[in-house]
Design a protein around this nucleic acid. Structure first.
Lengths: 177, 177
DNA sequence: TAAAATATGTCAACAAGGCTGACATAAATT
DNA sequence: AATTTATGTCAGCCTTGTTGACATATTTTA
């Protein structure tokens, strides 16, 4: 009897707690925090017929104007077919424009339009407000601790990408290299 | 000419930076951190034919054994139809069992089985390891700062739910009230 | 006790946003 | 001239969310 579901399916009535050697507190906090963090822009995006995927594309095109499709795929870690759908919509609605790469004309450099920049800022504002409120009375040192923690949660290979975003401590930016 | 996409779609070539009054640094850190945070269990779950939704259900059933379907829906903030699919699979595979509520027999109390407890722990371990590594040299005070920040990111109405999870500072737990 | 409300389950259909595989085109590289 | 590269696109699949409708058992209420 392999008992996939049968007789020994005895209910465990004791709750798993932080004492079980696993950091349940932060695991759960990340889940709840991220869910609510994304909820503000999600609501706004729905009015445009956009989703979270559009938001991410719009965000990074605004942060790294002129990036190529391949570079964007590398930041987002999705396939080009996934990107194609949402990128097409953002182009069709005039939020993003494509410009043939000057050096390599196979490439398409992606830039936000005025409209795309405005939408990106609209989406970022409630998130920024939430973050500011959550930081509350935090000192600059505490903020550094939070940023350091979040960055350390990212896979090491990808931390360089974060540094290369414009205005971030180490990197010299992306725009006009 | 409404110009949905036309002549004035001029590419903006300047990158949006932290100086634009929006906290781009933490916005991006949350995106990257959460993506990588979920990637470890996602990979493991794929081997079982499960997804992130199964993980969440399994997690909270282990954390609050005996919760009812309605309570679980309230924690996850999804519809019962969404829950039904994944819950059914978890029950069919013997990870979770249902027990008729003793007071109200319409209710189904949800409990993990030994198998469900084991899987939940397996999934939590890499996440916990990542968190521990990210905390690194952080002091207890820094950790508190991080937890306080994350909790403050959650919508205020829902913070009580977090406190009521077993082992969390204020709440007196859920199990055998 | 009969009627209404509640907790849960289930069917059907739909959408977003991931995925894979295959193939086309233009441009650059070899 | 042949190959590789960057991008686009078609078709189909999967997970996980959604809504609406309806069935069943049980509890509560009138």
């Amino acid at each position: 009897m392999t008992d996939r579901k049968g007789s020994n399916a005895i209910p465990i009535r004791t709750a798993l707690t932080n004492e079980d050697g696993v950091d349940l507190a932060i695991i759960e906090l990340l889940f709840f925090a991220y869910r609510d963090f994304t909820s503000d822009p999600d609501q706004m995006l729905a009015e445009y017929g956009f989703g979270r995927a559009h938001h991410r594309v719009l965000h990074f095109v605004n942060r790294m104007p002129g990036l190529t499709v391949a570079e964007l795929l590398d930041v987002l870690k999705i396939t080009k077919q996934s990107l194609a759908r949402v990128l097409k919509q953002l182009i069709d609605t005039g939020h993003i424009v494509q410009v043939p790469g000057p050096r390599d004309r196979r490439q398409r450099e992606l830039y936000p339009t005025e409209k795309g920049r405005a939408l990106m800022l609209d989406l970022a504002r409630p998130q920024s407000r939430r973050i500011l409120a959550a930081l509350g009375e935090s000192s600059a040192t505490e903020r550094e601790g939070i940023e350091r923690f979040l960055k350390a949660m990212v896979n090491p290979e990808l931390r360089a990408q974060i540094d290369n975003l414009p205005g971030n401590t180490s990197g010299k930016g992306h725009g006009d290299e």
